[in-house]
Structure formats: structure tokens, C-alpha cells
């Protein structure tokens, strides 16, 4: 099978992977690089469980052709915590505000929140809801997730 070698940065580190044209970025991250934080929830861009950042923008890795990651900077949930393992303020807020239940949507949710706060440091509640709308959660009913993003925004803006 034809393979194309792509070179990109994942969480700040260089990665080189020979990918098949039909692979998506999610497969490269999960299967080739063993970064299993991004989940496949639907495979059709409808649930957001596979959300990662490509050049700072939130995308569904399940719909992102692996080839297109060539030259990109990719951030996965594994890349958010600090060097000593201390949680990113968004991650900490999710834990402390009760925004995590089964956790399957959490990595994607955290990354959507990060993409938003990088773009809009102090978003309105409506902006938060809009940014997270593509991340489905069946456990929490979203309220504590929204509050966690608000708390993280305040902390990051201090």
C-alpha cells in the first residue's frame, strides 16, 4: 500500500510517520503514536471526542486527513499538563468543578475550551456554549463544564 511520510510536531516534539492516504489524524495519534487521549466517539465529526488542536485550532481528528498534518503543530490532551505533570488550569478547573464524569468526552472538551480561551481570553457564556457545542457529553448536562471553563478563563486572565 502506498505510504506518504509526514513530519509534524505533536505536543512540541517532532514526529515522523508513514501514513496511508486514507488514514485520518486520529489513527496516527492513537495507533502510531499511542496518544490515546483523543477518542473516537462517532467517526463522523458529530461528537467531538476526537478533538485535537492543529495549529491552535480545534478540529475533529476523525475527519482530518493524516496527510494534511504534514508540517503542522498538533496538540493533544497529553500535551497540556506542565513538565512536572501539574495540570493546565483548564484541566484543574474541570476536576475541581465536577465537570468530569465518565470522562470519555473530557479530552476533547478540554481542548475545545483551550482553543476558545487562546482566541477569546474572557468569553461570554454564550461563546463558551458555542465553542463546546460540538463536544457531546451524555453524563454532566454541561452546566459544570461551562462553569469550569469560566473559572479557567478567569484564572488564566489573572
Amino acid at each position: 500500500m502506498e505510504r506518504i511520510t509526514i513530519r509534524f510536531k505533536v505536543n512540541g516534539e517532532d514526529a515522523t510517520v508513514a501514513v496511508a492516504p486514507h488514514w485520518n489524524l486520529l489513527r496516527v495519534l492513537r495507533e502510531e503514536l499511542e496518544l490515546t487521549g483523543a477518542k473516537e466517539g462517532c467517526g463522523a465529526g458529530e461528537c467531538g471526542a476526537c478533538t485535537v488542536l492543529v495549529n491552535g485550532r480545534a478540529v475533529n481528528a476523525c475527519l482530518y486527513p493524516a496527510v494534511e498534518a504534514d508540517g503542522a503543530e498538533v496538540t493533544t490532551v497529553e500535551g497540556l499538563a506542565g513538565p512536572g505533570g501539574e495540570l493546565h488550569p483548564i484541566q484543574r478547573a474541570f476536576v475541581e468543578k465536577g465537570a468530569v464524569q465518565c470522562g470519555f468526552c473530557t479530552p476533547g472538551m478540554v481542548l475545545s475550551a483551550k482553543a476558545l480561551l487562546d482566541r477569546v481570553p474572557l468569553p461570554s457564556e454564550e461563546e463558551i456554549r458555542t465553542a463546546l457545542a460540538g463536544n457531546l457529553c451524555r453524563c454532566t448536562g454541561y452546566a459544570q463544564i461551562i462553569e469550569a471553563v469560566q473559572a479557567a478563563a478567569e484564572e488564566l486572565s489573572r
Partner: peptide, 9 residues
């Protein structure tokens, strides 16, 4: 359209 993730691409 779709979600922010979709609109981004």
C-alpha cells in the same frame, strides 16, 4: 454550520 471543529476546516 456543524460545530466549531467542523467550521475550522
Amino acid at each position: 454550520v456543524g460545530s466549531r471543529q467542523v467550521r475550522n476546516v
